[in-house]
């Protein structure tokens, strides 16, 4: 079911995210958790994985609590249940990006140069990252829309508040050496 929903989020994100907010089961999320733990363990040689994993879990929990407390339809508990379902699936592009970055780090180690090959790889890597970022933004928008059941303007307003609070936290995590790119 997890793989079916993941494929659904690629080809029809709107209807898939709506279904996830309504009828997904808790057992589906174990795959995301396993993939996240495997990712952080596999970076063991580069960073202290426990710091990264605890940072990611704090960001995940903090995000769900933050959006649950914002005014919208439903009780805090209902919103939290829907958010856990949908926000977990928005971690898919994040996981794909981090896994591929890890892969490229060992395949073509940085730093990049301004040679033709270096620039070609830079174009490919930026395009790849932008695609995943746009997909992530679509999923995030749908997650908030279906979990809190609010309209476009309010989704944008809530996202701006979220970013205003999160960016200083991401900088703090960067300065503490926990994560360079936030795992959200």
């Amino acid at each position: 079911m997890f793989f079916k929903r993941s494929i659904g989020l690629i080809f029809s994100p709107y209807s898939s995210m709506r279904k996830i907010s309504l009828e997904s089961t808790w057992s589906e999320y174990i795959w995301i958790l396993i993939l996240t733990i495997i990712y952080f363990i596999s970076t063991n040689s580069v960073h202290f994985w426990l710091n990264g994993l605890s940072g990611a879990l704090c960001l995940y929990g903090g995000t769900i609590i933050f959006f649950s407390l914002l005014p919208s339809s439903g009780t805090i508990q209902e919103k939290m249940q829907r958010l856990i379902k949908t926000w977990t699936y928005t971690l898919l592009p994040t996981l794909i990006w981090f896994y591929s970055t890890l892969f490229f780090y060992f395949l073509i180690p940085p730093p990049r140069t301004t040679s033709i090959l270096g620039q070609s790889f830079s174009i490919f890597y930026i395009a790849f990252s932008m695609s995943l970022l746009i997909w992530k933004l679509i999923l995030t928008y749908l997650c908030i829309r279906f979990s809190l059941r609010i309209h476009l303007y309010r989704v944008i307003y809530y996202l701006l508040i979220y970013l205003a609070l999160s960016i200083p936290l991401w900088i703090f995590l960067y300065n503490m050496g926990i994560s360079r790119i936030p795992f959200v």
Partner: peptide, 10 residues
């Protein structure tokens, strides 16, 4: 190009 290097270390 530097941005890509930064992201690859990210």
């Amino acid at each position: 190009v530097r941005l890509v290097s930064l992201l690859q270390y990210g």
